[in-house]
Design a protein around this nucleic acid. Sequence first.
DNA 1: CAGCGAGGCGCG
DNA 2: AAAGCGCGCCTCGCTG
Length: 610
Amino acid sequence: MDELNWELVTEPSQIPKVMEDFGRHQLLGFDFETTGLHYMKDQVHGMGLANPDRAWYITMPVLNQLMPWLKDRMHDPRVQSIGHNVKFDLHFLKKLDPTIKPANIVDTMVAQWLVDENERLGLKHVAEARLGMEGLLTFKDLQRITKADKGFKRMDEVTVYDMDLDLLGKYGAMDPWLGVQMWPELYWDLVQESQEQHFFDTEMPFIFVLQRMEETGFYVYTDKLLELRYEWEKRHTELFEQWCDLTKTKGEDSKYPNGRNPNSNPQLAEWFYDILDLPISFRTEGGAPSTKALAIMRLSYVDESGSANLIKEYRKLDKLLSTYVNPFLEKTYNGYIYGSYNHTGAVTGRLSSSDPNLQNIPAHGETGSQVRRVIGAPPGSLFLMIDYSQIELRLAAHYAQVQALMETFAQGGDPHQTTADLVGVVRYIAKNLNFAWFYGAGPRKFCDMVEEKGYPRPSMTDAKRWFWQFGEAYPELMDWKFAVLRAGKRLGHVRTITKRRRHLPELSSFSERDRGRAERQAVNSIIQGSAGDLIKWAMLQIDPILEDYDARMNSQTHDELGFIVPNDAADEFALIAQQKMVAVEEVFDLSVPILAEPILGQTWGDTKES
DNA sequence: CAGCGAGGCGCG
DNA sequence: AAAGCGCGCCTCGCTG
Protein backbone atom coordinates (compact mmCIF):
# COMPACT_ATOMS: atom_id res chain seq x y z
CA MET A 1 0.00 0.00 0.00
CA ASP A 2 1.24 3.43 -0.98
CA GLU A 3 1.90 6.06 1.63
CA LEU A 4 -0.57 8.90 1.85
CA ASN A 5 0.83 11.87 -0.03
CA TRP A 6 -1.16 14.81 1.22
CA GLU A 7 -1.24 18.58 1.45
CA LEU A 8 -3.02 21.13 3.61
CA VAL A 9 -4.71 23.91 1.64
CA THR A 10 -5.54 27.04 3.61
CA GLU A 11 -4.54 29.84 1.23
CA PRO A 12 -6.31 31.00 -1.94
CA SER A 13 -2.96 31.04 -3.70
CA GLN A 14 -2.73 27.25 -3.41
CA ILE A 15 -5.96 26.60 -5.31
CA PRO A 16 -4.63 26.69 -8.91
CA LYS A 17 -1.98 24.16 -8.01
CA VAL A 18 -4.56 21.78 -6.49
CA MET A 19 -6.54 21.83 -9.75
CA GLU A 20 -3.41 21.30 -11.77
CA ASP A 21 -2.04 18.54 -9.58
CA PHE A 22 -5.36 16.69 -9.45
CA GLY A 23 -5.08 16.31 -13.21
CA ARG A 24 -7.53 14.32 -15.32
CA HIS A 25 -8.06 11.51 -12.85
CA GLN A 26 -11.51 9.96 -13.06
CA LEU A 27 -11.60 8.74 -9.48
CA LEU A 28 -12.42 11.66 -7.23
CA GLY A 29 -12.67 10.96 -3.51
CA PHE A 30 -14.34 13.57 -1.33
CA ASP A 31 -15.23 13.83 2.32
CA PHE A 32 -16.30 16.75 4.49
CA GLU A 33 -15.16 17.48 8.00
CA THR A 34 -17.91 19.39 9.77
CA THR A 35 -18.72 20.94 13.11
CA GLY A 36 -21.01 17.99 13.87
CA LEU A 37 -23.29 15.32 12.48
CA HIS A 38 -26.41 17.46 12.07
CA TYR A 39 -26.75 18.01 8.35
CA MET A 40 -28.94 21.10 8.76
CA LYS A 41 -27.39 22.74 11.79
CA ASP A 42 -23.71 22.02 11.32
CA GLN A 43 -21.16 23.74 9.13
CA VAL A 44 -18.33 22.71 6.85
CA HIS A 45 -14.85 23.03 8.31
CA GLY A 46 -13.09 21.69 5.25
CA MET A 47 -13.13 19.06 2.57
CA GLY A 48 -10.82 16.19 1.90
CA LEU A 49 -10.15 15.56 -1.77
CA ALA A 50 -8.26 12.65 -3.26
CA ASN A 51 -7.23 10.99 -6.48
CA PRO A 52 -5.39 7.65 -6.53
CA ASP A 53 -2.01 9.40 -6.18
CA ARG A 54 -2.54 12.18 -3.70
CA ALA A 55 -4.86 13.92 -1.34
CA TRP A 56 -5.65 17.39 -0.02
CA TYR A 57 -7.49 18.90 2.87
CA ILE A 58 -8.96 22.26 1.91
CA THR A 59 -10.35 24.47 4.65
CA MET A 60 -13.15 27.00 4.52
CA PRO A 61 -13.50 29.63 3.20
CA VAL A 62 -10.78 28.85 0.64
CA LEU A 63 -12.77 25.79 -0.38
CA ASN A 64 -15.38 28.11 -1.92
CA GLN A 65 -12.86 29.05 -4.59
CA LEU A 66 -12.48 25.44 -5.61
CA MET A 67 -16.22 24.88 -6.02
CA PRO A 68 -16.54 25.83 -9.73
CA TRP A 69 -13.75 23.39 -10.57
CA LEU A 70 -15.26 20.73 -8.30
CA LYS A 71 -18.65 21.13 -9.93
CA ASP A 72 -17.09 20.83 -13.36
CA ARG A 73 -15.32 17.62 -12.35
CA MET A 74 -18.31 16.11 -10.58
CA HIS A 75 -20.67 16.88 -13.46
CA ASP A 76 -18.48 14.97 -15.87
CA PRO A 77 -20.14 11.54 -16.08
CA ARG A 78 -16.75 9.91 -16.62
CA VAL A 79 -15.65 11.09 -13.19
CA GLN A 80 -16.68 8.89 -10.30
CA SER A 81 -17.28 10.96 -7.16
CA ILE A 82 -16.38 8.54 -4.40
CA GLY A 83 -17.29 8.79 -0.77
CA HIS A 84 -18.17 6.72 2.24
CA ASN A 85 -21.73 7.43 3.35
CA VAL A 86 -22.10 9.94 0.54
CA LYS A 87 -25.56 11.13 1.60
CA PHE A 88 -24.01 13.00 4.50
CA ASP A 89 -21.52 14.75 2.23
CA LEU A 90 -24.20 15.59 -0.33
CA HIS A 91 -25.97 17.67 2.31
CA PHE A 92 -22.85 19.77 2.81
CA LEU A 93 -21.96 19.88 -0.86
CA LYS A 94 -25.37 21.43 -1.47
CA LYS A 95 -24.73 24.04 1.21
CA LEU A 96 -21.61 25.18 -0.63
CA ASP A 97 -23.30 25.09 -4.03
CA PRO A 98 -26.99 24.21 -4.32
CA THR A 99 -26.58 23.54 -8.06
CA ILE A 100 -24.10 20.69 -7.67
CA LYS A 101 -25.31 17.20 -8.39
CA PRO A 102 -22.53 14.69 -9.04
CA ALA A 103 -23.27 12.82 -12.26
CA ASN A 104 -21.68 9.57 -11.17
CA ILE A 105 -21.50 8.91 -7.48
CA VAL A 106 -20.02 5.89 -5.75
CA ASP A 107 -20.71 5.15 -2.13
CA THR A 108 -18.19 2.66 -0.78
CA MET A 109 -20.31 2.08 2.30
CA VAL A 110 -23.31 1.02 0.25
CA ALA A 111 -21.03 -1.06 -1.98
CA GLN A 112 -19.63 -2.91 1.01
CA TRP A 113 -23.16 -3.41 2.35
CA LEU A 114 -24.26 -4.99 -0.93
CA VAL A 115 -21.19 -7.21 -0.99
CA ASP A 116 -21.63 -8.36 2.58
CA GLU A 117 -24.41 -6.94 4.71
CA ASN A 118 -22.98 -8.57 7.82
CA GLU A 119 -19.59 -6.83 7.73
CA ARG A 120 -18.94 -3.70 9.73
CA LEU A 121 -19.48 -0.75 7.44
CA GLY A 122 -17.45 2.05 9.04
CA LEU A 123 -14.76 3.48 6.76
CA LYS A 124 -11.96 2.48 9.12
CA HIS A 125 -13.19 -1.08 9.37
CA VAL A 126 -13.62 -1.51 5.65
CA ALA A 127 -10.23 0.06 4.94
CA GLU A 128 -8.47 -2.07 7.51
CA ALA A 129 -10.09 -5.22 6.14
CA ARG A 130 -9.64 -4.43 2.45
CA LEU A 131 -6.39 -2.48 2.36
CA GLY A 132 -4.64 -4.28 5.18
CA MET A 133 -4.14 -1.02 6.98
CA GLU A 134 -4.01 -0.86 10.72
CA GLY A 135 -4.27 1.70 13.48
CA LEU A 136 -6.25 4.19 11.41
CA LEU A 137 -7.37 7.13 13.51
CA THR A 138 -11.05 7.65 14.03
CA PHE A 139 -12.70 11.01 14.56
CA LYS A 140 -13.16 9.98 18.15
CA ASP A 141 -9.40 9.45 18.47
CA LEU A 142 -8.92 13.01 17.22
CA GLN A 143 -11.30 14.25 19.87
CA ARG A 144 -9.51 12.28 22.58
CA ILE A 145 -6.09 13.56 21.54
CA THR A 146 -7.36 17.13 21.48
CA LYS A 147 -9.07 16.74 24.82
CA ALA A 148 -5.83 15.52 26.42
CA ASP A 149 -3.65 18.14 24.68
CA LYS A 150 -5.77 21.14 25.51
CA GLY A 151 -7.06 20.03 28.88
CA PHE A 152 -10.78 19.85 28.11
CA LYS A 153 -12.96 18.34 30.80
CA ARG A 154 -15.51 16.67 28.55
CA MET A 155 -15.44 15.15 25.09
CA ASP A 156 -18.42 17.19 23.89
CA GLU A 157 -16.53 20.43 24.56
CA VAL A 158 -14.03 19.53 21.85
CA THR A 159 -14.89 21.03 18.48
CA VAL A 160 -13.27 20.63 15.14
CA TYR A 161 -11.80 24.12 15.54
CA ASP A 162 -9.85 23.07 18.64
CA MET A 163 -7.99 20.36 16.77
CA ASP A 164 -4.46 20.66 15.53
CA LEU A 165 -4.86 21.55 11.88
CA ASP A 166 -2.11 19.25 10.65
CA LEU A 167 -3.69 16.33 12.48
CA LEU A 168 -7.20 17.14 11.29
CA GLY A 169 -5.93 17.82 7.78
CA LYS A 170 -4.17 14.52 7.53
CA TYR A 171 -7.25 12.76 8.82
CA GLY A 172 -9.50 14.71 6.46
CA ALA A 173 -7.28 13.93 3.47
CA MET A 174 -6.92 10.28 4.45
CA ASP A 175 -10.64 9.46 4.37
CA PRO A 176 -11.36 10.23 0.71
CA TRP A 177 -8.05 8.69 -0.27
CA LEU A 178 -9.01 5.44 1.45
CA GLY A 179 -12.25 5.46 -0.52
CA VAL A 180 -10.39 5.86 -3.80
CA GLN A 181 -8.03 3.02 -2.85
CA MET A 182 -10.87 0.67 -1.85
CA TRP A 183 -13.24 1.28 -4.71
CA PRO A 184 -11.56 -0.82 -7.45
CA GLU A 185 -11.61 -3.87 -5.22
CA LEU A 186 -15.18 -3.24 -4.09
CA TYR A 187 -16.27 -2.80 -7.69
CA TRP A 188 -14.64 -6.09 -8.57
CA ASP A 189 -16.60 -7.77 -5.79
CA LEU A 190 -19.83 -6.24 -7.03
CA VAL A 191 -19.11 -7.54 -10.53
CA GLN A 192 -18.23 -10.99 -9.21
CA GLU A 193 -21.59 -11.14 -7.53
CA SER A 194 -23.55 -9.55 -10.40
CA GLN A 195 -24.58 -6.68 -8.18
CA GLU A 196 -23.01 -3.82 -10.12
CA GLN A 197 -26.09 -3.05 -12.18
CA HIS A 198 -28.27 -2.93 -9.08
CA PHE A 199 -25.63 -0.78 -7.41
CA PHE A 200 -25.50 1.84 -10.17
CA ASP A 201 -29.15 1.76 -11.27
CA THR A 202 -30.89 1.55 -7.92
CA GLU A 203 -28.77 2.10 -4.85
CA MET A 204 -26.73 5.08 -6.07
CA PRO A 205 -29.72 7.10 -7.39
CA PHE A 206 -31.53 6.23 -4.16
CA ILE A 207 -28.97 8.22 -2.17
CA PHE A 208 -30.27 11.44 -3.73
CA VAL A 209 -33.83 10.46 -2.88
CA LEU A 210 -32.91 9.95 0.75
CA GLN A 211 -30.92 13.16 0.86
CA ARG A 212 -33.90 15.18 -0.35
CA MET A 213 -36.18 13.37 2.07
CA GLU A 214 -33.94 14.22 4.98
CA GLU A 215 -33.63 17.90 4.09
CA THR A 216 -37.43 18.12 3.93
CA GLY A 217 -38.02 17.08 7.51
CA PHE A 218 -41.24 17.06 9.50
CA TYR A 219 -43.02 20.28 10.33
CA VAL A 220 -43.57 20.52 14.10
CA TYR A 221 -46.59 22.09 15.75
CA THR A 222 -44.53 23.30 18.68
CA ASP A 223 -47.39 24.80 20.69
CA LYS A 224 -49.24 21.50 20.66
CA LEU A 225 -46.05 19.70 21.60
CA LEU A 226 -45.50 22.04 24.56
CA GLU A 227 -49.10 21.47 25.70
CA LEU A 228 -48.55 17.73 25.55
CA ARG A 229 -45.39 18.06 27.57
CA TYR A 230 -47.11 20.16 30.22
CA GLU A 231 -50.03 17.78 30.55
CA TRP A 232 -47.99 14.59 30.60
CA GLU A 233 -45.22 15.98 32.79
CA LYS A 234 -47.81 16.87 35.41
CA ARG A 235 -49.26 13.36 35.50
CA HIS A 236 -45.77 11.85 35.34
CA THR A 237 -44.72 13.74 38.49
CA GLU A 238 -47.91 12.72 40.26
CA LEU A 239 -47.33 9.07 39.51
CA PHE A 240 -43.68 9.30 40.47
CA GLU A 241 -44.55 10.74 43.87
CA GLN A 242 -47.28 8.18 44.49
CA TRP A 243 -44.88 5.40 43.56
CA CYS A 244 -42.13 6.69 45.83
CA ASP A 245 -44.56 7.11 48.68
CA LEU A 246 -45.88 3.59 48.23
CA THR A 247 -42.52 1.87 47.86
CA LYS A 248 -40.39 3.59 50.46
CA THR A 249 -39.29 1.25 53.22
CA LYS A 250 -38.94 2.52 56.72
CA GLY A 251 -36.21 1.67 59.18
CA GLU A 252 -32.69 2.83 59.94
CA ASP A 253 -30.86 0.55 57.53
CA SER A 254 -33.36 0.79 54.71
CA LYS A 255 -31.83 1.25 51.28
CA TYR A 256 -34.91 3.06 50.07
CA PRO A 257 -36.14 5.48 52.70
CA ASN A 258 -37.36 7.81 49.94
CA GLY A 259 -38.87 5.17 47.71
CA ARG A 260 -37.63 3.08 44.83
CA ASN A 261 -36.60 4.27 41.39
CA PRO A 262 -39.43 3.30 39.01
CA ASN A 263 -36.97 3.29 36.12
CA SER A 264 -34.80 0.63 37.71
CA ASN A 265 -35.83 -2.89 36.85
CA PRO A 266 -33.82 -4.49 39.67
CA GLN A 267 -35.56 -2.22 42.17
CA LEU A 268 -38.95 -2.98 40.58
CA ALA A 269 -38.28 -6.69 40.71
CA GLU A 270 -37.28 -6.52 44.35
CA TRP A 271 -40.44 -4.63 45.19
CA PHE A 272 -42.84 -6.95 43.39
CA TYR A 273 -41.20 -10.31 43.91
CA ASP A 274 -39.45 -9.91 47.30
CA ILE A 275 -41.37 -7.31 49.27
CA LEU A 276 -44.87 -8.03 47.92
CA ASP A 277 -43.93 -11.66 47.24
CA LEU A 278 -46.00 -11.83 44.05
CA PRO A 279 -45.53 -14.72 41.61
CA ILE A 280 -42.82 -14.54 38.94
CA SER A 281 -44.16 -15.39 35.49
CA PHE A 282 -41.24 -14.51 33.22
CA ARG A 283 -37.50 -14.43 33.59
CA THR A 284 -35.05 -12.31 31.62
CA GLU A 285 -32.33 -13.66 29.36
CA GLY A 286 -29.98 -13.46 32.33
CA GLY A 287 -32.34 -15.32 34.63
CA ALA A 288 -33.58 -12.36 36.66
CA PRO A 289 -37.31 -12.02 37.38
CA SER A 290 -38.73 -9.97 34.52
CA THR A 291 -40.63 -6.73 34.94
CA LYS A 292 -41.76 -6.52 31.30
CA ALA A 293 -45.21 -5.21 30.47
CA LEU A 294 -46.84 -8.63 30.21
CA ALA A 295 -45.44 -9.63 33.60
CA ILE A 296 -46.73 -6.40 35.18
CA MET A 297 -50.10 -6.92 33.50
CA ARG A 298 -50.39 -10.28 35.20
CA LEU A 299 -49.29 -8.82 38.53
CA SER A 300 -52.01 -6.20 38.33
CA TYR A 301 -54.66 -8.90 38.72
CA VAL A 302 -53.34 -10.02 42.11
CA ASP A 303 -51.60 -6.90 43.41
CA GLU A 304 -53.66 -5.18 46.10
CA SER A 305 -51.26 -2.28 46.71
CA GLY A 306 -52.07 -0.66 43.37
CA SER A 307 -48.37 -0.42 42.54
CA ALA A 308 -48.62 -2.62 39.45
CA ASN A 309 -51.19 -0.35 37.85
CA LEU A 310 -49.16 2.65 38.93
CA ILE A 311 -46.01 1.43 37.22
CA LYS A 312 -47.92 0.57 34.05
CA GLU A 313 -49.14 4.13 33.65
CA TYR A 314 -45.80 5.59 34.78
CA ARG A 315 -43.86 3.54 32.23
CA LYS A 316 -46.16 4.61 29.44
CA LEU A 317 -45.82 8.32 30.20
CA ASP A 318 -42.10 8.03 30.85
CA LYS A 319 -41.59 6.39 27.46
CA LEU A 320 -43.63 9.06 25.69
CA LEU A 321 -41.84 11.93 27.40
CA SER A 322 -38.29 10.62 27.34
CA THR A 323 -38.32 9.12 23.84
CA TYR A 324 -40.66 11.37 21.89
CA VAL A 325 -41.93 14.58 23.48
CA ASN A 326 -38.72 15.90 25.02
CA PRO A 327 -36.34 14.81 22.25
CA PHE A 328 -38.69 16.29 19.64
CA LEU A 329 -38.65 19.61 21.42
CA GLU A 330 -34.88 19.55 21.68
CA LYS A 331 -34.41 18.52 18.08
CA THR A 332 -36.81 20.98 16.49
CA TYR A 333 -34.73 23.28 14.31
CA ASN A 334 -36.31 26.20 12.43
CA GLY A 335 -39.69 24.58 13.04
CA TYR A 336 -38.77 21.19 11.63
CA ILE A 337 -37.43 17.88 12.88
CA TYR A 338 -34.65 16.49 10.73
CA GLY A 339 -33.86 12.84 11.21
CA SER A 340 -31.61 10.45 9.31
CA TYR A 341 -32.67 7.61 7.09
CA ASN A 342 -29.94 5.03 7.03
CA HIS A 343 -29.54 3.38 3.64
CA THR A 344 -27.56 0.45 5.03
CA GLY A 345 -29.35 0.33 8.37
CA ALA A 346 -30.82 -3.14 8.05
CA VAL A 347 -29.35 -6.43 6.86
CA THR A 348 -32.61 -7.23 5.09
CA GLY A 349 -32.42 -4.15 2.87
CA ARG A 350 -34.91 -2.07 4.78
CA LEU A 351 -34.04 1.46 5.81
CA SER A 352 -33.52 2.38 9.40
CA SER A 353 -34.03 5.80 10.94
CA SER A 354 -32.23 7.65 13.70
CA ASP A 355 -31.68 11.00 15.47
CA PRO A 356 -34.56 10.92 15.97
CA ASN A 357 -35.95 7.60 14.83
CA LEU A 358 -38.94 8.57 12.71
CA GLN A 359 -39.95 4.96 12.11
CA ASN A 360 -41.04 4.16 15.66
CA ILE A 361 -43.31 7.06 16.51
CA PRO A 362 -46.33 5.84 18.49
CA ALA A 363 -49.14 4.75 16.23
CA HIS A 364 -51.62 3.00 18.48
CA GLY A 365 -54.17 4.39 20.88
CA GLU A 366 -55.08 7.94 21.82
CA THR A 367 -51.61 8.82 23.15
CA GLY A 368 -50.12 7.62 19.87
CA SER A 369 -52.43 9.89 17.89
CA GLN A 370 -51.61 12.76 20.22
CA VAL A 371 -47.89 12.39 19.45
CA ARG A 372 -48.54 12.06 15.73
CA ARG A 373 -50.71 15.15 15.73
CA VAL A 374 -47.69 17.37 16.54
CA ILE A 375 -45.81 16.58 13.32
CA GLY A 376 -46.82 16.81 9.69
CA ALA A 377 -47.07 19.51 7.05
CA PRO A 378 -46.87 23.29 7.60
CA PRO A 379 -50.04 25.38 7.19
CA GLY A 380 -50.81 25.76 3.49
CA SER A 381 -49.73 22.22 2.77
CA LEU A 382 -51.10 18.81 3.61
CA PHE A 383 -49.46 15.70 4.91
CA LEU A 384 -50.02 12.71 2.69
CA MET A 385 -49.50 9.17 3.87
CA ILE A 386 -49.76 6.24 1.49
CA ASP A 387 -49.36 2.76 2.86
CA TYR A 388 -49.13 -0.61 1.23
CA SER A 389 -51.85 -2.94 2.39
CA GLN A 390 -50.52 -6.23 3.84
CA ILE A 391 -47.48 -6.12 1.59
CA GLU A 392 -45.62 -8.90 3.40
CA LEU A 393 -48.53 -11.30 3.38
CA ARG A 394 -49.04 -10.63 -0.31
CA LEU A 395 -45.39 -11.37 -0.99
CA ALA A 396 -45.63 -14.59 0.98
CA ALA A 397 -48.66 -15.60 -1.09
CA HIS A 398 -46.79 -14.69 -4.28
CA TYR A 399 -43.57 -16.51 -3.42
CA ALA A 400 -45.21 -19.67 -2.16
CA GLN A 401 -48.07 -19.48 -4.67
CA VAL A 402 -50.57 -20.03 -1.87
CA GLN A 403 -53.80 -20.72 -3.75
CA ALA A 404 -56.22 -19.80 -0.96
CA LEU A 405 -54.48 -16.48 -0.27
CA MET A 406 -54.03 -15.66 -3.95
CA GLU A 407 -57.77 -16.07 -4.44
CA THR A 408 -58.56 -13.95 -1.40
CA PHE A 409 -56.31 -11.15 -2.59
CA ALA A 410 -57.61 -11.41 -6.16
CA GLN A 411 -61.16 -10.92 -4.86
CA GLY A 412 -60.19 -8.07 -2.57
CA GLY A 413 -60.90 -10.19 0.48
CA ASP A 414 -59.44 -10.21 3.96
CA PRO A 415 -56.52 -12.66 4.29
CA HIS A 416 -56.82 -12.84 8.07
CA GLN A 417 -60.45 -13.89 7.69
CA THR A 418 -59.39 -16.52 5.16
CA THR A 419 -57.01 -17.96 7.71
CA ALA A 420 -59.73 -17.74 10.32
CA ASP A 421 -62.13 -19.71 8.12
CA LEU A 422 -59.58 -22.35 7.15
CA VAL A 423 -58.21 -22.89 10.66
CA GLY A 424 -61.56 -22.49 12.36
CA VAL A 425 -60.70 -19.63 14.69
CA VAL A 426 -61.74 -16.02 15.26
CA ARG A 427 -60.06 -13.32 13.21
CA TYR A 428 -57.62 -11.98 15.81
CA ILE A 429 -56.28 -15.47 16.42
CA ALA A 430 -55.88 -15.97 12.68
CA LYS A 431 -54.14 -12.62 12.28
CA ASN A 432 -51.59 -13.58 14.91
CA LEU A 433 -51.13 -17.00 13.30
CA ASN A 434 -50.28 -15.25 10.05
CA PHE A 435 -47.70 -13.05 11.77
CA ALA A 436 -46.31 -15.96 13.77
CA TRP A 437 -45.70 -17.80 10.53
CA PHE A 438 -43.42 -15.35 8.86
CA TYR A 439 -41.60 -14.56 12.08
CA GLY A 440 -41.21 -18.28 12.73
CA ALA A 441 -42.78 -18.01 16.18
CA GLY A 442 -43.77 -21.15 18.02
CA PRO A 443 -46.98 -21.86 19.96
CA ARG A 444 -45.64 -20.39 23.21
CA LYS A 445 -44.58 -17.06 21.68
CA PHE A 446 -47.83 -17.02 19.77
CA CYS A 447 -49.73 -17.22 23.06
CA ASP A 448 -47.63 -14.37 24.48
CA MET A 449 -48.40 -12.31 21.36
CA VAL A 450 -52.12 -12.79 21.81
CA GLU A 451 -52.02 -12.09 25.55
CA GLU A 452 -49.89 -8.95 25.11
CA LYS A 453 -52.57 -7.48 22.90
CA GLY A 454 -55.06 -7.85 25.71
CA TYR A 455 -56.87 -10.96 24.50
CA PRO A 456 -57.31 -14.01 26.71
CA ARG A 457 -54.26 -16.27 26.60
CA PRO A 458 -55.00 -19.36 24.52
CA SER A 459 -54.12 -22.77 25.92
CA MET A 460 -51.01 -24.45 24.56
CA THR A 461 -53.18 -27.35 23.40
CA ASP A 462 -55.30 -25.03 21.29
CA ALA A 463 -52.26 -23.18 20.00
CA LYS A 464 -50.53 -26.39 18.92
CA ARG A 465 -53.67 -27.58 17.20
CA TRP A 466 -54.04 -24.29 15.32
CA PHE A 467 -50.43 -24.43 14.18
CA TRP A 468 -51.03 -27.87 12.75
CA GLN A 469 -54.24 -26.74 11.06
CA PHE A 470 -52.46 -23.69 9.69
CA GLY A 471 -50.02 -26.01 7.97
CA GLU A 472 -52.89 -28.04 6.55
CA ALA A 473 -54.59 -24.89 5.30
CA TYR A 474 -51.52 -23.59 3.49
CA PRO A 475 -49.43 -26.56 2.35
CA GLU A 476 -47.71 -24.36 -0.26
CA LEU A 477 -46.29 -22.20 2.51
CA MET A 478 -44.72 -25.23 4.15
CA ASP A 479 -43.31 -26.52 0.84
CA TRP A 480 -41.88 -23.13 -0.06
CA LYS A 481 -40.17 -22.80 3.30
CA PHE A 482 -38.62 -26.22 2.86
CA ALA A 483 -37.33 -25.33 -0.60
CA VAL A 484 -35.98 -21.99 0.61
CA LEU A 485 -34.07 -23.64 3.43
CA ARG A 486 -32.63 -26.35 1.23
CA ALA A 487 -31.35 -23.89 -1.37
CA GLY A 488 -30.26 -21.42 1.30
CA LYS A 489 -28.21 -24.04 3.08
CA ARG A 490 -26.52 -25.06 -0.15
CA LEU A 491 -25.65 -21.49 -1.18
CA GLY A 492 -25.14 -19.91 2.23
CA HIS A 493 -27.54 -17.13 1.37
CA VAL A 494 -31.07 -16.29 0.27
CA ARG A 495 -32.14 -13.62 -2.21
CA THR A 496 -34.85 -10.96 -2.34
CA ILE A 497 -36.97 -10.09 -5.34
CA THR A 498 -34.23 -7.82 -6.74
CA LYS A 499 -31.61 -10.51 -6.12
CA ARG A 500 -30.08 -8.78 -3.15
CA ARG A 501 -28.59 -11.31 -0.80
CA ARG A 502 -28.82 -12.12 2.87
CA HIS A 503 -25.86 -14.26 3.87
CA LEU A 504 -26.82 -16.99 6.31
CA PRO A 505 -23.92 -19.40 6.73
CA GLU A 506 -25.49 -20.54 9.99
CA LEU A 507 -28.08 -22.44 7.97
CA SER A 508 -25.42 -25.16 8.07
CA SER A 509 -24.68 -24.81 11.76
CA PHE A 510 -24.71 -27.93 13.88
CA SER A 511 -26.13 -25.90 16.74
CA GLU A 512 -29.88 -26.42 16.85
CA ARG A 513 -30.36 -22.92 18.25
CA ASP A 514 -28.20 -21.14 15.70
CA ARG A 515 -29.54 -23.08 12.77
CA GLY A 516 -33.12 -22.53 13.91
CA ARG A 517 -32.53 -18.80 14.10
CA ALA A 518 -30.93 -18.73 10.66
CA GLU A 519 -33.90 -20.64 9.25
CA ARG A 520 -36.36 -18.11 10.65
CA GLN A 521 -34.16 -15.31 9.34
CA ALA A 522 -34.00 -16.90 5.88
CA VAL A 523 -37.75 -17.01 5.42
CA ASN A 524 -38.33 -13.61 6.96
CA SER A 525 -35.52 -11.92 5.01
CA ILE A 526 -36.99 -12.89 1.66
CA ILE A 527 -40.35 -11.42 2.59
CA GLN A 528 -39.17 -8.39 4.56
CA GLY A 529 -36.29 -7.69 2.18
CA SER A 530 -38.48 -7.93 -0.91
CA ALA A 531 -41.03 -5.59 0.64
CA GLY A 532 -38.09 -3.22 1.20
CA ASP A 533 -37.10 -3.58 -2.46
CA LEU A 534 -40.62 -2.81 -3.67
CA ILE A 535 -41.00 0.40 -1.70
CA LYS A 536 -37.49 1.47 -2.69
CA TRP A 537 -38.45 1.02 -6.32
CA ALA A 538 -41.62 3.04 -5.77
CA MET A 539 -39.67 5.83 -4.09
CA LEU A 540 -37.32 6.04 -7.07
CA GLN A 541 -40.31 6.29 -9.41
CA ILE A 542 -42.06 8.95 -7.34
CA ASP A 543 -38.98 11.11 -6.79
CA PRO A 544 -38.83 12.66 -10.28
CA ILE A 545 -42.52 13.65 -10.31
CA LEU A 546 -42.37 15.44 -6.95
CA GLU A 547 -41.31 18.75 -8.44
CA ASP A 548 -44.23 18.79 -10.89
CA TYR A 549 -46.49 19.19 -7.87
CA ASP A 550 -44.08 21.12 -5.65
CA ALA A 551 -44.39 18.11 -3.35
CA ARG A 552 -41.74 16.65 -1.07
CA MET A 553 -41.29 13.10 0.16
CA ASN A 554 -40.32 13.24 3.81
CA SER A 555 -40.74 9.84 5.39
CA GLN A 556 -40.75 6.09 4.93
CA THR A 557 -41.88 3.61 7.53
CA HIS A 558 -41.18 0.30 5.77
CA ASP A 559 -44.59 -0.06 4.11
CA GLU A 560 -45.69 3.58 3.98
CA LEU A 561 -44.52 6.82 2.44
CA GLY A 562 -45.11 10.32 3.78
CA PHE A 563 -45.23 13.54 1.74
CA ILE A 564 -45.70 17.25 2.22
CA VAL A 565 -47.92 18.52 -0.61
CA PRO A 566 -49.37 21.97 -1.36
CA ASN A 567 -53.12 22.01 -0.63
CA ASP A 568 -54.27 22.47 -4.22
CA ALA A 569 -52.06 19.72 -5.63
CA ALA A 570 -52.75 17.18 -2.91
CA ASP A 571 -55.53 15.07 -4.42
CA GLU A 572 -53.95 14.82 -7.83
CA PHE A 573 -50.50 14.04 -6.49
CA ALA A 574 -51.89 11.43 -4.09
CA LEU A 575 -53.40 9.58 -7.02
CA ILE A 576 -50.20 9.63 -9.08
CA ALA A 577 -48.01 8.54 -6.18
CA GLN A 578 -50.45 5.75 -5.36
CA GLN A 579 -50.31 4.57 -8.98
CA LYS A 580 -46.51 4.44 -8.82
CA MET A 581 -46.64 2.41 -5.63
CA VAL A 582 -49.05 -0.18 -6.98
CA ALA A 583 -47.16 -0.40 -10.26
CA VAL A 584 -44.78 -2.84 -8.58
CA GLU A 585 -47.42 -5.47 -9.23
CA GLU A 586 -46.71 -5.47 -12.98
CA VAL A 587 -43.05 -4.49 -12.84
CA PHE A 588 -42.14 -7.37 -10.55
CA ASP A 589 -44.70 -9.69 -12.10
CA LEU A 590 -46.45 -10.47 -8.84
CA SER A 591 -49.17 -13.11 -8.61
CA VAL A 592 -51.29 -11.01 -6.29
CA PRO A 593 -52.75 -7.52 -6.62
CA ILE A 594 -50.95 -4.75 -4.73
CA LEU A 595 -52.94 -2.10 -2.92
CA ALA A 596 -51.83 1.24 -1.52
CA GLU A 597 -54.09 3.61 0.35
CA PRO A 598 -53.55 7.36 0.40
CA ILE A 599 -54.79 9.50 3.29
CA LEU A 600 -54.49 13.27 3.60
CA GLY A 601 -54.42 15.41 6.74
CA GLN A 602 -52.70 18.37 8.31
CA THR A 603 -50.58 16.14 10.55
CA TRP A 604 -49.50 12.54 10.67
CA GLY A 605 -52.07 11.95 13.40
CA ASP A 606 -54.88 13.19 11.20
CA THR A 607 -54.05 10.61 8.56
CA LYS A 608 -54.56 7.78 11.02
CA GLU A 609 -58.14 8.51 11.98
CA SER A 610 -60.17 7.73 8.88
C1' DC B 1 -16.35 11.13 32.35
C1' DA B 2 -16.88 7.54 28.71
C1' DG B 3 -18.40 3.20 27.20
C1' DC B 4 -21.09 -0.91 27.34
C1' DG B 5 -24.46 -4.69 28.10
C1' DA B 6 -28.95 -5.63 29.76
C1' DG B 7 -33.68 -4.94 30.03
C1' DG B 8 -37.44 -2.84 28.29
C1' DC B 9 -40.37 -0.88 24.55
C1' DG B 10 -41.75 2.09 20.48
C1' DC B 11 -42.57 0.90 15.25
C1' DG B 12 -43.40 -2.30 10.80
C1' DA C 1 -40.21 -30.87 20.40
C1' DA C 2 -39.71 -26.12 20.10
C1' DA C 3 -38.58 -22.46 17.46
C1' DG C 4 -40.20 -14.16 17.23
C1' DC C 5 -38.08 -11.16 12.03
C1' DG C 6 -36.03 -6.26 11.40
C1' DC C 7 -34.75 -1.81 13.69
C1' DG C 8 -33.17 2.62 17.51
C1' DC C 9 -33.42 4.82 22.05
C1' DC C 10 -34.24 5.16 26.94
C1' DT C 11 -32.37 4.26 31.75
C1' DC C 12 -29.72 1.70 34.92
C1' DG C 13 -25.73 -0.20 36.81
C1' DC C 14 -21.28 -1.40 36.27
C1' DT C 15 -16.32 -0.97 34.58
C1' DG C 16 -12.13 1.39 33.28
